[in-house]
C-alpha cells in the first residue's frame, strides 16, 4: 500500500526549534540519533522502529515525487511512502537524507545527504500496550 504523500512541512527548515520529549529545545539541523532514541524511551505511546530503504523510484504521478519502499521493524513489513524528492528522512548514525539532497539544501537550507538503498531510517510506531 502507498501512503498519502506528505507535503514539505515548515519544521524541516534550517533553524526550526524542535522540542525533545524531556523538554530540551534543539535546532532541526542539530538533532542526533540519540535525541530520537531518548525521546522515544520517555514516550508512553511511541517507539522507534528501524526502516531500511529497499527501493527508491520515481513517482508515476509527478517528477517532483519519489516512492520510497521501506522494510519496517523486526517483521520486515513492506511500506511504501510517496514523498517530495526533497523530503528528509533521518538515517541512524548519519542524519538527514533525502532523494534529492541538493534540492533539500536549496529549499530548506537543511544539510542533507543522499538517501540510498540500504540506509536505515528512524520511523515511529505505537508501543505495544499489553
Amino acid at each position: 500500500s502507498t501512503m498519502v504523500p506528505p507535503s514539505l512541512p515548515p519544521y524541516f527548515i534550517k533553524g526550526s526549534i524542535i522540542q525533545l520529549a524531556d523538554g530540551e529545545l534543539k535546532r532541526v539541523e542539530d538533532l542526533k540519533t540519540e535525541d530520537f532514541i531518548q525521546s522515544a524511551e520517555i514516550s508512553s505511546e511511541l517507539k522507534i522502529d528501524s526502516s531500511t530503504v529497499e527501493r527508491i523510484e520515481g513517482s508515476h504521478t509527478s517528477p517532483n515525487f519519489a516512492v520510497v519502499q521501506f522494510s519496517v521493524g523486526e517483521h520486515r513489513t513492506q511500506v511504501s511512502v510517496e514523498v517530495l524528492v526533497e523530503y528528509p528522512f533521518f538515517v541512524f548514525g548519519q542524519g538527514w537524507s533525502s532523494c534529492c539532497p541538493d534540492r533539500t539544501t536549496q529549499l530548506l537550507e537543511l544539510p542533507c545527504t543522499k538517501l540510498s538503498v540500504g540506509d536505515v531510517c528512524i520511523s515511529l510506531t505505537l508501543k505495544n500496550l499489553r
Binding site: P6, P9, P10, Y11, F12, S16, I17, I18, Q19, L20, A21, L25, V28, L31, D35, F36, S39, S43, L46, I48, D49, S51, F70, V72, G73, H75, T77, V79, V81, F89, F90, C121, I122, S123, L124, T125, L126
Partner: peptide
C-alpha cells in the same frame, strides 16, 4: 517562534500486524 514536537519530524510507518 513556533516550537515543534520531536515526533512530528519522524514518519509514522505503522505496519498492520496480525500478531
Amino acid at each position: 517562534v513556533p516550537v515543534f514536537p520531536w515526533h512530528s519530524l519522524v514518519p509514522f510507518l505503522a505496519p498492520t500486524q496480525s500478531d
